[in-house]
Simulated scan of single mutants.
Amino acid sequence: MSMFNWLFQPFIEFDFMRYALAAMVFLAVSTAPIGVFLMMRRMSLVGDALGHAILPGAAVGYLMAGLSLPAMSIGGFVAGLTMALLAGLASRFTNIKEDASFAAFYLSSLAIGVVLVSRNGNSVDLLNLLFGSILAVDLPALTLVAVVSSITLLALAVMYRPLLLESIDPLFLQAVGGRGSVWHLAFLVLVVLNLVSGFQALGTLMAVGLMMLPAISARLWANSMGGLIALATLMAISCGLAGLLFSYYVELPSGPAIILCCGLVYVLSLIFGQESGLLPRWWRHRRHRAH
């Protein structure tokens, strides 16, 4: 048996590994571009807040219908969207900044979700909601992820220019009647939608990792928007594949293993990243001083 066949034997032999890999590819293709826009709009922690915010909705769906994918997904989507709207209203009508509003609401949401599951479920249910189980992804869950990924890519194709303009120069977009607040709200809906599709596989705590870590890592290598999105997507797919294989052969939980791979890529990018990594910056500074 060749090295290649040995390494990828799990995907050849087991259906659940093929489902998990397909889910990771779909998630990577949709969440990585979302992560890039979040980073460019200085909203990285907002993604984390929304990831926590879907927990109480998913918990309510679980308590009402058990481990039902539609119930938990609808509950998570409604909870995440509600928190985004409430945080936006709080920042609009008070002197509290939007990031502070998100922090306040997401901490409360996380506590409510944990209390709901702890009082009416068990520790295993809570762990599944928080950390997911990508190896348990079945055909309905894979279909949901594929549909959300398709919707996201189509929506981003339509929203790309106004989102890019609002990220770089929101005042100019406002001056030309670009309706920045509408695009901002639509973008938040996409963020919540992707977190809901991701929490089934990676859990509410880990889904944000696949969204943000590849995007942040890519920023250390590229400076154009197209390059950032392409590189972040490639990194997310590669980390998903490596994390699945690592979790299979070392017998670790698959979701955390995938995010650990993303974290390792970030550390390597932080050191070696051509755009603003520590070693290239040190080398450029040294050459500049020599001249």
Rank of each mutant, 00 (worst) to 15 (best):
L260K: 00
F187K: 02
L69E: 10
L63C: 12
L205A: 12
I237C: 04
L85S: 06
H184Y: 13
I112W: 07
I96S: 04
A79H: 07
L21F: 12
E98Q: 13
L127W: 09
W183Q: 09
N128D: 14
L278N: 08
F199P: 05
L164I: 07
G209W: 03
V25C: 00
A201N: 00
L220T: 06
G180E: 03
T204Y: 07
L185N: 04
C261N: 01
E166T: 09
L234T: 08
V60C: 12
A215P: 00
A65R: 12
A215L: 02
L135T: 10
S224G: 12
G57I: 14
H52Y: 11
R119H: 08
G47M: 06
L165I: 13
F16Y: 14
P256D: 01
S254V: 06
S30A: 14
S150M: 15
G240N: 07
M24V: 03
D99G: 03
C262T: 01
L21E: 02
V78I: 15
P256H: 02
R287C: 05
T152C: 09
T82D: 01
L130R: 02
M159Q: 07
S247T: 05
A71N: 03
S254P: 11
M212S: 07
A218Y: 01
A28R: 05
M83Q: 10
Y266S: 08
A79I: 11
R284Y: 07
V137A: 07
M17L: 08
N194F: 03
A65V: 09
M1F: 02
L67T: 15
W282A: 15
L38Q: 04
Q174W: 03
M43W: 10
F11K: 00
L173P: 10
P214Y: 01
L213S: 05
S73F: 04
F105M: 14
M43H: 08
N120M: 13
L154V: 15
C262W: 05
L139P: 01
Q174T: 13
L139A: 15
L153E: 02
L185Y: 13
V147A: 15
L67K: 14
R289P: 02
T94Y: 03
A28S: 12
D125A: 12
L135N: 09
I259P: 05
L252R: 06
L173Q: 11
F11N: 10
L234W: 11
I259W: 01
Y248M: 06
V182N: 02
L171G: 10
V115R: 07
E275W: 09
A186D: 03
D48V: 11
G273P: 00
S73L: 04
P253I: 02
F272Q: 05
T31K: 03
Y62L: 15
F102H: 10
L241R: 02
M24P: 00
A201V: 04
T31M: 11
A257V: 02
R179H: 14
G203V: 03
L67I: 13
A186M: 13
V117H: 14
L129V: 05
A186P: 04
G263E: 05
I271T: 08
M235Y: 06
S149K: 10
S108E: 06
C239Y: 04
P70A: 11
R281W: 08
